[in-house]
Design a protein around this nucleic acid. Sequence first.
DNA 1: CTATGCGGACGTACTAAGTACGGTAAGTAC
DNA 2: GTACTTACCGTACTTAGTACGTCCGCATAG
Lengths: 217, 217
Amino acid sequence: MSAQTRPENARPRLSRERVLQGAMAVADAGGLAALTIRSIAQELDVKPMSVYHHVANKDAIVDGIVDLVFSEIELPTPGKDWQAEIRRRSVSAREALRRHPWAIQLLQSRTHPGPATMRHHNAVIGTLRQGGFSVAKTAHAFALIDSYVFGFALSEAALPIHGPETVPGVAAQMLEGFDPNEFPHLVEFSVAHILQPGYDFGAEFGYGLTLVLDALA
Amino acid sequence: MSAQTRPENARPRLSRERVLQGAMAVADAGGLAALTIRSIAQELDVKPMSVYHHVANKDAIVDGIVDLVFSEIELPTPGKDWQAEIRRRSVSAREALRRHPWAIQLLQSRTHPGPATMRHHNAVIGTLRQGGFSVAKTAHAFALIDSYVFGFALSEAALPIHGPETVPGVAAQMLEGFDPNEFPHLVEFSVAHILQPGYDFGAEFGYGLTLVLDALA
DNA sequence: CTATGCGGACGTACTAAGTACGGTAAGTAC
DNA sequence: GTACTTACCGTACTTAGTACGTCCGCATAG
């Protein structure tokens, strides 16, 4: 029998793509702290040092998975209605960052954008320019929109809330050790809003996005 | 001679406060990666394990310095003109995060707010409420403003730019390895705006802040 | 078929970091 | 003085990133 292919039950060959996908799976499951060379190797059913045949070092892996996240964001189409296109891309970006919250804190430290990141920025800028924005206005709009989108994702990820049922416990824990009378506005806000049934911070996103896009128009 | 006081040239006693100040100095100087127990100890002229007599673990140090950053933000005063007060606090917040850019990526993972953080949130919410915002509108405004402020700080910190003279080199490095024709909008934007003398991303902050505050009014 | 070369996977081991555990010395209360 | 407390430190264990060298299996040359 020819040995040109591996036995069916063998794992496929390692590759840069498989390393990055494995790394993303690890980060999704356990957060950035769980992302170690050893955990990635285990996820891929391989020994740690094998990973290094496909990526230079851990930083390259991190750069790679950040670009993977950008590749999940729907690109706006330059030439079409800018407001609708930017809205679609913003909603998509927020969803991507919700799926991969660990990516947010990496956005800051990564200075080696990958191809998906470049395509993304190019498409956003092109959509604004062809939507009638001058170069200077494009800069304003780009800064405002992305600050809002990424900032919202940051706030959302900072909330230790995973499902409505966890809200009361978290709120109680945050206030524990403090005198409630010292923070009357915070207490009123918690009781009258956050602790109400049906509270969902994520719903705020659309409200702010509409306000921002209208303000730019 | 009495030994009730240490010799003059001796370092002062360690304390939780000195540990946090030392940790902040280390982070300011070398970023989060440089923040290790050993580096903090060296900064304080002490051995590593001595630090642990004043803080429970490294996480407690991180929680502590995040709260220190919040303590540097000017609080808005409930009852006064909300727009002016929120603007002052937002400008102050952005400046604090520029002094301590490492704090941004920590905002996300910290779920144990300190007293300064609580005071800050309380003051912001109080200012909005007494500015005439309903509880629901306060939630909208709070989410929008803070998303913008923190998101802007995140974007600003993500730029590997430290002074105008470094811009061309960074831009060149980012495009290196890519075909410029693939990203025409990005190239136009870079050439026509970013590479112009006097370009300063930070100046965008005020523009977006005004737009956001006006939209809320 | 055998020999040979190459590249992917791996074993070992070094360094740095967090921190558990117990020791020691200086101060404090009586 | 004696006993207790507090602050500081020495040692050592564990987990991480990764440099270095080895081995094995496949592909191609002969």
